[in-house]
Design a binder for these strands. Sequence first.
DNA 1: TATGAATGAGGGTTCATTCAT
DNA 2: CATGAATGAACCCTCATTCAT
Lengths: 176, 176, 176, 176
Amino acid sequence: MLEAAIAAFAAEGLSVPIHEIARRAGVGTGTVSRHFPTKEALYIAIVRDRIERVVERGRARTASEDPGTAFFEFFETTVDEFAANLGLADALAGAGFDMHAVASGAKHDVIGILGDLLTRAQKAGAVRKGIEVDDIKALMVACCRGPQSADARARRRMVEVISQGLRTETRRPTRS
Amino acid sequence: MLEAAIAAFAAEGLSVPIHEIARRAGVGTGTVSRHFPTKEALYIAIVRDRIERVVERGRARTASEDPGTAFFEFFETTVDEFAANLGLADALAGAGFDMHAVASGAKHDVIGILGDLLTRAQKAGAVRKGIEVDDIKALMVACCRGPQSADARARRRMVEVISQGLRTETRRPTRS
Amino acid sequence: MLEAAIAAFAAEGLSVPIHEIARRAGVGTGTVSRHFPTKEALYIAIVRDRIERVVERGRARTASEDPGTAFFEFFETTVDEFAANLGLADALAGAGFDMHAVASGAKHDVIGILGDLLTRAQKAGAVRKGIEVDDIKALMVACCRGPQSADARARRRMVEVISQGLRTETRRPTRS
Amino acid sequence: MLEAAIAAFAAEGLSVPIHEIARRAGVGTGTVSRHFPTKEALYIAIVRDRIERVVERGRARTASEDPGTAFFEFFETTVDEFAANLGLADALAGAGFDMHAVASGAKHDVIGILGDLLTRAQKAGAVRKGIEVDDIKALMVACCRGPQSADARARRRMVEVISQGLRTETRRPTRS
DNA sequence: TATGAATGAGGGTTCATTCAT
DNA sequence: CATGAATGAACCCTCATTCAT
């Protein structure tokens, strides 16, 4: 059922009726409500699920020997994950509910992971100094909600520009 | 009335009731419906209005002697314009209606203007070559929909990173 | 519309669907909700309306030259009024909402009127001394919710017994 | 399970979910439905059970040497029994189901018992002549549904007034 | 036999749209 | 032309009942 809900949110955004989610899952509306007492509870469950996966993937890269690549790959992969899902993107943008409540706890600490990856990438000289974790988060959310979230090519190009923007100064020769 | 609608969308998002828009405009709900037969027509009118202003501003910069500055300022100003309006940002993201229908005609040809500014900036060496107008559009829309569209600081920092990303290669020394 | 709602509550009790009330009133469900934002607001409006009438009638008797008759007639009339209406009787019995909030203010002070009438009747020797206004209220509510509230004869006989019970001791000769 | 249902109805009224009853009984909802195919069947079973107990108690008093006391005690005890249960009181008031079907058969012939006790009390001069068994029934049901069925003091005072009303004429001196 | 997940009709409420005034 | 009351479809949620395990 979570899969059906994810697909429904992905296809129609957060405003998809419960009825439609139920239809996709091949169950009655009551069954959806039974598992997730409110629609918000359903969003939250999905967002937590997705964030968990993102955090796991991020944590796996934390010890990478190439912190720059680890960071940039994490950025792109995560954007892809969320961009493919209209509802998740809406949710991430804080469209009317409390992300803090959703994403608390170690298993959902995207910011923590992101901070680790960023710091390591900066120490390795792959990302310029002034950048903060909140900047990265803002950019990630922005990319997730680009106009054609289904258009992977457009997304890849956006991410490439942003990556260049993050990398830039460290690559600039010192005498410049 | 357009102003009231913009304010209402900005304050409460796309889901603001027509009744609230009418209240803010000091008119009856019927009057709103008379001018804009459906709610979608109202969005579209607002978007057209905003885009018109953006296009005007862009056209004014088309002849600038500093194409790089013209381009980057246009980028930032436009993002600010749309980001300030939650509802428009949602609408722009394609919340179920046809952007092409909205933005056709010379007065709304944001892509044309953007193309001009981009080409000139590229010719002047301010923006690197591989960038296409669709990339710029995607990045602009993305910036409008960062997590806290009301947070001007976050937005400015995003735009700065992206600007670096667009500029990058031209600044990079040739021997690099 | 109030009339239709009163009739609907009278016929089917508090649990009558809004849809049924709307049907009786010959309007859409939205129209009912428009006038009374929640179902509870509708109960309250009806109860207030009815209580107002009761209070008016009671106040008119307050100056009667025959306090005993005034009191007993008020008792019976009020019981008839509410007994004829299942919903009002439910409401009176406090079936799940706050009567105090409903019946505050001079226009709805049933207890005050009842107290006046009772005291005067007691002073006139028509009602025995130990009786308190809360007893009267309890008895009234009880009568309203007898099993056959539509059966006027049964109600009249109940009221007669209660009246005797209230009168009794004052009629008993002092030497008894 | 009957006990759990009684407690649940008492605590939350007739609208208590079956699920809650099942929870209190420590069984599954299916088990409740198995024993009582519909919710109404459950009410009826409870009412029958209670009425059986009342009838038994009444029958025991039928042969009392003090028919007046027997009658009045039966009246008060029975009211207490039902008043303690909000849901049953509602049900008794005819909240949409057929009391006749419920209370038929010798084991549930509350009217018969009441008639016996009443007749004997009248013959003994403890209750005045004009009173009929239906009056008693109506008064009993009414008392069960006073405004605060949980308020034993209010109930006791109501019963006292009614008892006086029933007794009245026998106590009134003949010359009055 | 006992279970409780699944069902889906039905509840109250909201709101875009219509239309008589 | 402006109005806002009326509409009723659509939403989310509850819950009595069913049935596979």
